[in-house]
Write a protein that binds this DNA or RNA. Structure first.
Lengths: 216, 216
DNA sequence: TAGATTGTTAATCGATTAACAATC
DNA sequence: TAGATTGTTAATCGATTAACAATC
């Protein structure tokens, strides 16, 4: 256990991958896993997995590997997914409504409990089979408090994204933001994660294209 | 110009950020930009920007900076967005239909021209204002050829994602995949980019949570 | 015990940053 | 010319990997 050391930033994303793989192995009825097997499945070196886990404690047993149940628990404690997080999504467009319906998030305890929009025609409606209500952005802080929302999602066009971020971080309960708008967001006192779909497509065509005409 | 050197992998994503910022500055009526200003806007060191660009050529002018028009052109050549890419999305669920409607992609030349699904009730319908048709997955390779699709998107549940990836890469025209399913995908001969929404949420709560109960 | 696999140290690798000569 | 800013080299920083003693 070397939990006094600084944790490299790529570790956070890898922990989520480990957790997902552990769940798959548990569902397959397995009891134990070695860093070697986990690594083979995820195309990650076994020494990297052992090092990543060692930042948070010694979860394994020499000679036999990691118990899947206790590893799952440990990872959930580390990432804060041993609980429910209530989410408010600003922007009831394509992406916002897709998130409200998305099973993948709910399964991990991320629960979209409200959408917000400035379009009066959308306000008052509900979205999807989970019937998530759409509120007016004017009610943002009020509803965030009422519904115990701690995570805000920005799903509005780029030009409104920064002002939505400012409004969200103004509500005392908000602890983090996930930004889907294709623009750089500045925040204070609040964690931020970007999901940049168009950047992913551009990265892909960069790799396909070979970097430059005339290069390989 | 040091285009014979290996390009660090984080460069691809940063180029997309530079491009976006250059477009914003052009829209604001500017003519030139320095690496310093670009860096300040994106929270990236100016020396990093100069180094990133230098892999592909000398686009700047000492003393004055970079001409926005020619920098934009250069970046579009590098990333292959000086053209249209036709996209086929497998999975006409929440995420698939959101992508078919997403303006942000179309604006950069990524055009969703077909959705594919195995659900007979969805096949034959069209989606959104752009009226993107839904075809049966049985017709995958046929339509990919017919519609000049070069990029496949995986927007199906995790358990089907690998088999969809295999089917897509079996079609000769496919050059790259974007995977939205929360699972690791294995490919041959084809570029792959993951957009992992639930991993982003877990990274966020990891940061909020502080890494571990009892840690800070 | 013998075999397997962890946790951790030290070595390596790769990416970022600072510094500065070149030059507009 | 003097001032500004590039392109590039060399130094630094941080993350990954190999190696191995500890131990189940």
């Amino acid at each position: 256990m070397e939990s006094n050391k600084k944790i490299p930033s790529p570790v956070a994303k890898r922990l989520a991958l480990y957790h997902r793989c552990v769940e798959t192995l548990l569902r397959a009825g397995k009891e134990m896993v070695s860093s070697k097997e986990l690594g083979d499945r995820l195309s990650i070196k076994s020494s990297q997995i052992r090092k990543d886990l060692s930042y948070f404690g010694g979860f394994g047993k020499r000679g036999t590997g990691y118990n899947l149940h206790s590893l799952k628990d440990a990872l959930e404690n580390i990432m804060g997914i041993n609980r429910t997080w209530n989410i408010g999504v600003v922007g009831a467009g394509n992406i916002g409504t897709a998130l409200a319906n998305y099973e993948g998030l709910l399964k991990d305890g991320y629960k979209v409990v409200a959408l917000f929009d400035k379009n009066e025609k959308k306000v008052g409606k509900v979205v999807g089979t989970r019937r998530v209500p759409i509120y007016h952005v004017n009610e943002l802080c009020e509803k965030i408090k009422e519904l115990s929302i701690e995570i805000g999602v920005i799903a509005v066009p780029a030009e409104y994204a920064q002002s939505v971020a400012d409004k969200l971080t103004n509500c005392a309960e908000i602890k983090g933001l996930v930004n889907f708008a294709p623009v750089k967001i500045y925040t204070h006192h609040v964690e931020l994660e970007d999901v940049d779909i168009s950047v992913s497509f551009k990265s892909l065509t960069f790799k396909i294209w070979g970097g430059f005409l005339g290069r390989k």
